[in-house]
């Protein structure tokens, strides 16, 4: 078995007395699509933000490609080859799609002013190719903020791709999308892995999407991991069914 790409080891995050994530451990293998689900307030977002470098872990470790990245700032995490997308649309709305992708490449290449002169050779994904991959090639000269919501989220994925990541963290990639856009989003996530070799760690509410595309799923409830396994395992897990009882979730 190949070495895991991302290792989360006994991660705990407290806010004052509140435990938002408690002793969570899992790994993401290269080429895997890994999902984190759980009822509202389960600690999914907290966990995501700790991995993305927005919060320090209270205890435990996160390592990427064998190197400890726990408590690294968001930009350091980005430089290691972990890109992320956001739940809400985060793009440069006043710029064209082309300028958006160009900026992403620049931001990923020039990390700080000292590297300005010594431009390290950095394999930036080709802009046109990325746009074609996303189906944005006809829209390159449109102002990003003028596109439909679903397309704006796709531009967000494009920004993350321009970083040239090995792992993409996706915060609710289906949030706010209509049913046909959700299908397209699921297909896109699969193609990211299949055609670009990008592993994906996603946090999502939409059960059919998660069950349909994830190789493995971690279920959180009140900050605690309660199940980890394939979609089939998780669906039949007693504690998972109990946790979701009373919530209006549909296990497709």
């Amino acid at each position: 078995m190949t070495a895991p790409l991302l290792v989360v080891d006994s991660l705990t995050r407290r806010f004052g007395g509140l435990v938002a994530a408690s002793d969570v451990s899992f790994t993401v293998a290269p080429g895997e699509i890994f999902g984190i689900i759980g009822p509202n307030g389960a600690g999914k977002t907290t966990l995501f933000n700790v991995i993305a470098g927005h919060y320090r872990p209270t205890a435990g470790r996160v390592s990427f490609e064998g190197k400890d990245i726990s408590g690294h700032a968001a930009d350091e995490v980005g430089r290691r080859g972990i890109a992320r997308t956001f739940q809400a649309v985060h793009i440069f709305k006043n710029e064209t799609v082309r300028a958006n992708l160009h900026r992403a490449a620049v931001l990923a290449r020039r990390h700080n002013p000292l590297t300005w002169l010594s431009r390290r050779p950095h394999a930036t994904p080709d802009l046109e190719g990325t746009a074609a991959f996303l189906g944005l090639d006809m829209l390159l000269d449109n102002v990003a903020g003028s596109l439909a919501y679903g397309l704006q989220k796709t531009v967000g994925v494009g920004l993350a791709m321009m970083v040239g990541p090995k792992l993409m963290l996706m915060d609710e990639p289906a949030a706010g999308l209509n049913p046909s856009e959700k299908i397209a989003a699921a297909a896109l996530i699969r193609r990211l892995r299949d055609e670009r070799g990008i592993s994906v760690l996603l946090v999502e509410h939409d059960m059919p999407l998660v069950m349909g595309i994830c190789d493995r799923i971690l279920v959180l409830n009140q900050g605690m991991p309660i199940a980890l396994g394939t979609p089939a395992d998780v669906k039949s897990d007693k504690s998972v069914i109990d946790a979701y009882l009373g919530e209006d979730y549909e296990f497709a």
Partner: peptide, 15 residues
Amino acid sequence: EDEMLSRSMGANALA
């Protein structure tokens, strides 16, 4: 325009 987005792509905002 969007510090969180820019940092996520690796830019060292403070520097």
